[in-house]
Design a protein around this nucleic acid. Structure first.
Lengths: 134, 134
DNA sequence: CGGGATCCGCGAGGATACTG
DNA sequence: CAGTATCCTCGCGGATCCCG
């Protein structure tokens, strides 16, 4: 399927199959990226690496509450998707640096648009929750 | 904390506490929005409602694979956050229409920026995966 | 230092049945 | 038609221990 974009709003082509095919929706690039960046730790890792390179344990200390396992998994996934570059220095003890790839850096722009929207409209969401219950 | 934005990239203020506080990260508006829109069905619901209003079962038929329960939950959450308006027509049988609120519509813009990025760079991600394994 | 291996709890999400 | 209620599965994410 691939959800398409035209101008300033998300558009689904007029000839969109109805119903939206389940298989194609789940493999849709937009869906994939949102689910990835919507997981628990990816955002803060991207934000930190967007500032400067980090060593593994340095990241671990910089993100309160993240487990070793999830930091590893988050970094591995980002690396596999080409968003993060991993650089090993064969010293003793070993030093591993993580940095955003150009692709990863290019993601920060659109991500910022969403972040901007979130901070701008956060009070409206809070107000709606206060009215509606929960 | 609230992840801040400056210009075209996500920035964390220089005085960002290190480590990033766990509690503040989880209640950060940006984190919340990303987790919401990153769940399984929110995106496609937003996209469809972005085109026109839908009745409940109409949506149910339009989205292959979604369970009744998850459609209800997704719509309820979107409604509570003020992104979707629910309109009940007291007819027999009852008719319920869902439409995007102005707030929900305003989300489509930044969401499109991310969707645009995803479609543009999908091949690079696929290539990275092909290289890296998995 | 930078992980991998293992075990486990919990909540997202699915299936089914029932209702105003 | 538009849900609610119930039960169940499965994978995300945490905790802990171990290793080169």
């Amino acid at each position: 399927m691939t959800i398409t974009v035209s101008g300033t709003h998300i558009g689904v082509p007029a000839q969109l199959p109805s119903p939206v095919p389940a298989a194609e929706y789940e493999t849709c690039p937009v869906t994939e990226v949102l689910r990835r960046v919507g997981d628990k730790w990816t955002l803060v890792v991207l934000v930190l690496l967007g500032r400067r390179p980090y060593r593994f344990n340095e990241l671990h200390r910089a993100i309160e509450g993240i487990s070793q396992r999830m930091l590893t998994r988050t970094l591995r996934t980002l690396e596999q998707d080409g968003l993060v570059d991993r650089e090993v220095h064969p010293t003793v003890p070993p030093g591993v640096e993580y940095r955003l790839s150009p692709l990863g850096t290019s993601l920060l722009g659109p991500l910022s648009a969403l972040a901007d929207w979130a901070t701008t409209h956060h009070d409206e969401i809070a107000a709606a929750r206060a009215r509606g219950g929960q």
